[in-house]
């Protein structure tokens, strides 16, 4: 039961983090969205064998997390959910692609392993970037920005309502499980024979609840457009933020920094 309550807390955690006031939070949402989009494009543009080239991109989420004062462990935990998927996608690469690609002093890495690791790293970085964006901007402001960028209204609405509906669903699950736990004699878990009715009940409840929420939105003049208040203007500082990261990403994209550094150092040593 306590598990349930903590996960209830967690589902809204990103929303709460988004209300903080740090340098990163104060940056214009448009700028943060654009920076994230650029970051994602850059990540995706690397081919599957470019592993070392990807490494410097780790700095973006790390620096932003540090500046925005986000709890790293919690973000990492959320990312774990996607891990099985990533592993599943990359799993067979090491089996099929056995030609040696990288010679390290202590081991040899086949092309398969390199591409597997790069899929993993790309996955981690993209998810982390998305989490960081939500945790520093908030879903409603992201939606406002998407509106400014002329993304069709229906998509934005879909995004927002899905996001909201998840928390509605989790809350209903929490209540139902609590009610069940209080009346069943089992120590923990839900008896197999009770799953059916419980899930059916849950589905009906969440649909009803979602409908009531929707009605109350309509009663307050909701017509399909989601107004999130005025968004402030982009300031010079914001532009510099974007330009700074933009330049960094470009440098990373076109210059293999780890390799260059490596050869520089070996050059000096020689």
């Amino acid at each position: 039961m306590s598990n349930m309550t903590t996960s209830l807390y967690n589902i809204r955690l990103l929303d709460e983090l988004a209300e903080k006031k740090t340098i990163i939070h104060n940056i214009h949402p448009l700028i943060k969205v654009l920076t994230t989009v650029l970051y994602l494009i850059i990540i995706v543009s690397f081919n599957k064998y470019e592993l070392s080239e990807l490494l410097p991109l780790i700095f973006y989420p790390i620096i932003v997390i540090a500046l925005a004062d986000l709890p790293l462990m919690i973000l990492l935990k959320r990312m774990l959910i996607a891990f099985p998927l990533l592993i599943g996608i990359g799993l067979f690469n090491p089996l099929f692609d056995r030609s040696t690609m990288v010679e390290l002093p202590w081991m040899q890495l086949s092309g398969g392993w390199v591409s597997f690791l790069s899929i993993l790293l790309k996955g981690v970085l993209t998810i982390l970037a998305a989490l960081v964006l939500i945790a520093t901007t908030g879903i409603t402001r992201i939606a406002a920005v998407l509106g400014m960028l002329r993304v069709p209204r229906i998509f934005i609405l879909q995004l927002l309502l899905t996001y909201r509906y998840i928390s509605v669903l989790v809350e209903e699950v929490g209540r139902t499980v609590r009610a069940y736990a209080l009346r069943s004699r089992r120590e923990k878990g839900i008896s197999f024979s009770d799953w059916g009715p419980l899930i059916g009940h849950l589905l009906l409840r969440t649909i009803e609840r979602a409908q009531r929420v929707y009605h109350s939105m309509c009663c307050r003049g909701f017509t399909g457009a989601y107004h999130t208040g005025s968004v402030s203007r982009v300031r010079t500082g914001d532009v510099f933020y974007f330009a700074g990261w933009g330049i960094y990403f470009m440098v990373v994209r076109f210059i293999n920094i780890p390799a260059t550094l490596g050869s520089l150092i070996t050059g000096v040593v020689r």
Partner: peptide, 10 residues
Amino acid sequence: DQLFMTTVYD
């Protein structure tokens, strides 16, 4: 049913 935003203000 009536409260669905992230802050009371919103």
